[in-house]
């Protein structure tokens, strides 16, 4: 039997790896991918809990998380494309016109 805590530890580790990627990468594409990674880590945790608490709620939630993640990825990439058209870069520290 795999204890629940192992799944949760795995989820935390992947989450923090995703967090690091989100904060530290300069390319917007990589930042989006890190976001997907973070969402997946949460999914793992939810499914684990669903299994160990013998409830379907976790899986339903994962269902919704996947849906929303897909929608958000679509829109985020659309914004990225629109941004790229204005200024042909995806480096996040070059889009800083709104600085004070």
């Amino acid at each position: 039997m795999v204890p629940l805590s192992w799944y949760v530890i795995l989820s935390s580790v992947i989450f923090s790896i995703g967090l690091f990627g989100f904060l530290a990468r300069r390319s917007l594409i990589m930042m989006f991918m890190s976001i997907e990674l973070m969402l997946n880590s949460v999914n793992i945790s939810l499914v684990a809990f669903s299994h160990y608490l013998q409830s379907m709620t976790g899986q339903i939630l994962v269902f919704f998380v996947i849906t929303v993640a897909a929608a958000e990825a679509a829109i985020g990439l659309a914004i990225l494309i629109a941004l790229y058209r204005n200024k042909p870069t995806v480096k996040v520290d070059e889009v800083n016109i709104l600085k004070g």
Partner: peptide, 12 residues
């Protein structure tokens, strides 16, 4: 106003 550097990663 220096706080507002416009850097997305910084805000995050």
């Amino acid at each position: 106003r220096k706080i507002q550097a416009g850097l997305l990663s910084g805000y995050a």
